[in-house]
Computed example of a mutant assay.
Amino acid sequence: MPDDSWEPPPVLLAVDLVILTLRSMTLHVLLVERGIDPYAGTQALPGGFLSNASEGIETAAHRELREEANLDASRLHLEQLGAYGAPDRDPRGRVVSVAYLAIAPALPVPVAGTDAAAASWQPVHEVSLGRLKLAFDHEQILTDALERARTKLERTSLATAFCSETFTIAELQQVYEAVWGVRLDPRNFYRKIQRVPGFIVPAGPNQRTTKGRPARLFRAGTRTTLHPPLVRPGPSTTNEVHT
């Protein structure tokens, strides 16, 4: 027999954004300094609650991208990362957050949103090495987003989302090195890239001068899955990057 006294528990729904970009060949994440409690003065991922009961979750993510970073979701890679709903993740009550991973090249200096005192790009390794603490469970969300990006670089064309419309092989290699946190041999990397048809294609006759030498320009091809995959090297075969 149904229990007529049952009432749904009060649950708030929010979105959090892991926005990644490369700056000076280093992987950065957008962080905001919280201007209100809880965790006032602490760094956090940008995000917020749904504005009303009729707002969709992805719509809320697009809105937060505009409000927190002045970014147009249609011009970057955006995918849902997962849901985070531990009962004690937010001291204000039961809050379930749907996290999104966003990636784009050459993102501008951010502007703080309504609940933030400041917004800035921070090197991801500052969080990974424990030098920078984040509010709520945002360190776990960032860790999950990094592993998602690292894994997808092996089997999809996600790396090109970090690049401008045209790029050199060296710039594409910098993406893999920054996200994977390893050094790669340029000749071996070039050979592996060339084994994947349709991953990148020549961008016409244009060339860019790098270190005194002309470098051929490429753009993203139509292929979205990589076969054979670009397998992430293990620590025994590469040197990890520590900064």
Rank of each mutant, 00 (worst) to 15 (best):
R155Q: 12
S157G: 07
V201Y: 13
S157L: 01
P123F: 12
H125E: 12
R208A: 07
L146D: 01
K152M: 15
T156E: 09
R148F: 03
F199K: 07
L134M: 15
R187W: 00
P214S: 04
N188P: 01
K192C: 08
N188G: 08
L217Y: 00
A178C: 07
D185Y: 13
K211E: 12
R131M: 10
S164V: 03
V175P: 07
V196F: 03
G204Y: 04
I141L: 02
L172E: 01
G204A: 09
A112G: 01
V111E: 15
T151C: 13
P202Y: 11
A116F: 08
G181S: 04
F189M: 11
Y190D: 11
T156R: 12
T209R: 09
P197H: 07
D137K: 06
G198H: 00
F199T: 04
R195P: 00
N206Q: 14
F189N: 06
E126Y: 09
T166D: 13
A145P: 05
E165A: 13
Y190A: 08
Q174Y: 12
A161K: 03
T151L: 11
R208E: 10
R150I: 02
V109C: 05
S128Y: 01
T209K: 05
A149E: 15
F167H: 03
F136C: 04
R131H: 15
L134H: 07
L184C: 10
E154V: 05
K133S: 15
H125D: 13
V127N: 04
V182E: 02
Q207L: 08
I193F: 08
R187M: 11
P108Q: 08
D115M: 13
A170K: 14
Q194W: 07
G130A: 04
L153E: 00
V124M: 05
L153C: 01
T168N: 10
E154T: 10
E177H: 05
S120P: 05
L146H: 06
R195Q: 15
V201F: 11
V127S: 10
S128V: 12
Y190S: 14
R208W: 04
V182S: 02
R187F: 09
A170F: 09
I193E: 02
T209D: 09
Q173E: 11
E147C: 01
A112T: 07
R131D: 15
T168A: 03
Q174W: 11
Y176W: 04
P205H: 11
H125V: 05
E147K: 07
L132E: 03
Y176G: 06
D185P: 03
W121D: 07
A170N: 10
E139A: 11
E177I: 05
R187S: 14
N188Q: 15
F189T: 09
P110F: 10
T209I: 14
T151Q: 13
A135P: 02
E139W: 04
G204I: 09
L158T: 01
V175K: 01
E126A: 14
G212A: 14
L158N: 00
